[in-house]
Each structure stands twice: as C-alpha cells, then as structure tokens.
Amino acid sequence: MSDLQPFEAVPNPLIAQPDFKVPAEMDAAIDELISHYPKKRSATLMLLHAIQERYGFISEEAVNWVAKKLELQPINVLEVATFYPMFKHRPVGRWHLKVCRTLSCALAGSYQIHQGYCKKFGLDPHAHGAQTSKDGQVTVEFVECLAACGSAPVLMCNETLHENVSEAKANEIVGGCK
C-alpha cells in the first residue's frame, strides 16, 4: 500500500477573482442575450464574451456565476471556457496584439512583426500562447488565420483589425498604445 502515490491534483486552469460582481445593467443585458435562445445553455459563449469584455478574463467565480445563471453545472461552463482560444484565464494587457501566423500572412512577413513585438516588450518569440509584458500593459499573441489574407500581413489590436502591416506601421500601432 505504501508504494502507491496519491494522484497529483490537476492544477486549476482558472484563478480566483474575489471581487467578481455583475452589476445590474450588465445582468439585464445578459438576460436579454439569454432570451435569444430556446435553451439557456446556448447562451454560454455569449455570456463568457460579455464577461471577458468587462473583466478581461474568465475567473473561477465567473464560471460559477455563468453556470448558476444558465442552470448548468460549473463543469459545463469550464469545459467551454477552456476549449475556445479566445477566452483568457489570466488578465491580459490593456493592449492585446494578435498577429496572424497562418500562411498568407507568414509569406508577407508576419513572423518578423511578431518577433519585433516580442523583442520590444521583452517576450519570448518561441513561447506558445499569449504573453504579457512585465508592466502588464501589452499582451502579444500569435493567432491563426484572421480571414483577411488579401491584405496580409494583418494583426488585431484589441478589436481593431490592421491590414497591410509594414514594419513602420507595426511600430506606429504600438506607438498609439498609451
């Protein structure tokens, strides 16, 4: 018996956010979203988007809140929040730079743009996933095809798409991130 090692607990992908609270007007907007669907569960993605738009990431409290709101088990929401790459489990910077990595953009120099940003903000260009600068201001991420291949290379800064991004334009974009 003594040879048996206890299973190591799988680390929780989510972090705590003790001050998580949904204000009344957001709650009303969420109720409206839920009314779009014959079954409440369908609203999961839209609710997670709404929460991420407000708080920047999805916390454990957020998952539990969504589960309660949609009358689901927390695991039903957790499995969604951990599958889709757009949902973040840690706060991201004020400026989230998503550089397109896929072929048409790569042929037009998106790797150089990504590398340039990583160098500028002290990040590892070979690391997977989103990385945030030490001061917490800027997050750089290599993402898959953004469906704007005709004007490659492209990147998104928060919700704005920038097309035909030259080196100069890439610098200009982060110059505006203040």
């Binding site: 779009h36 369908s42 839209m46 988007h49 969604v80 599958f83 889709y84």
Partner: peptide, 27 residues
Amino acid sequence: IHVHRGAGAYICGEETGLIESLEGKRP
C-alpha cells in the same frame, strides 16, 4: 435572426461542430 459569436475555433466551421457550439458546448 440573432447573431451568435464564436470564440476562435476553426472546427466551428464544420456544420455539426457549429451546431454543438451554438448549443453552448465544445464544438
């Protein structure tokens, strides 16, 4: 007609994956 947003998964373009996603699950 309602607009439903995906969240960055290519597989949601597959029609049955898309339907699962619209039901609030993994696609």
